[in-house]
Design a protein around this nucleic acid. Structure first.
Lengths: 142, 142
DNA sequence: CTTATATTTAGAATAGTTCTAATTCCGGCT
DNA sequence: AGCCGGAATTAGAACTATTCTAAATATAAG
């Protein structure tokens, strides 16, 4: 996908919510797309500063929040550690490697999602489900 | 189950970890068992104070941490909200009702847990999985 | 060009939790 | 019973991720 495509997608999504496309929002989003290692706001901040040295941390938080609102990015929480951000929009779980601290995306097939919804008793209406594995990734993992 | 049974179980678990049974730990644990509404540390604090008016918040945090270490209690995190505590040791998910803010336990049958482990690619070895639903509980729910 | 509104910004404020250092408690030894 | 040493508790300070505030800046619309 060309970078301009992402950029246009971003502009479109922002417009849909009555928001503007700004250099800060563009760069924050591109940083997330470029290295999908579930960075924290601080990590995003330091990566963005290469391109926009004068950006403030508050703006990074604002942009991330905006992207989450537009459904372009997911906020990922693990215990009480700093929130991490993830531009993977497919339904997926997270695997938290306790040795390395790294977070891996685990795709969730529709069948599993259905099975999961099946555990909800009558009267519980879920709009979303969040799944986090903890353990260690032994091998075959990048 | 008689209260003394829980008390003995607690004492046993603590001893297993080389820890002592104390009035503070007993009361904190009993508070969790008595009203299973996933209280925060602050809520536990105020409930415990009825029995131990001089207990400190730090001690409540210490006791909760100890109980979690001993596998008698689970710490439940939802987004970045204050940690909640849950003495339900059966495998279960949590349903977070966005209207009321209440958290409900959802039992997880072994079949579902197996299915879930099945989504992990070779090389991912999970020791635990945490599942949180979000939505609204419409009816038939206490 | 002007105006209105959105956005960014630096720094202060907040809140849940953890840390620190001093005190208290308690079991085991004599 | 009395003492010792480690465990536990305590009050308050410190920490940290995040949000808030208020002022400055940018930008789209008329």
């Amino acid at each position: 996908m060309a970078a301009t495509e992402n950029s246009e997608a971003l502009t479109q999504r922002l417009a849909d919510s009555g928001l503007r496309s700004t250099p800060q929002r563009e760069v924050v989003y591109n940083v997330l797309l470029k290295k999908r290692d579930h960075p924290t706001a601080d990590e995003v901040f330091s990566r963005v500063k290469f391109e926009l040295p004068t950006i403030s941390l508050a703006t990074v938080y604002n942009c991330l929040e905006t992207l989450v609102q537009c459904d372009l990015v997911r906020a990922v929480n693990f215990e009480r550690a700093p929130t991490r951000y993830c531009p993977n929009l497919r339904p997926h779980a997270h695997f938290h490697d306790e040795q390395t601290g790294r977070t891996h995306d685990i795709d969730l097939p529709p069948a599993v999602l259905e099975k999961l919804n099946g555990v909800l008793p009558r009267g519980f209406d879920a709009t979303s489900v969040e799944i986090t594995f903890r353990g260690k990734a032994t091998k075959f993992t990048s």
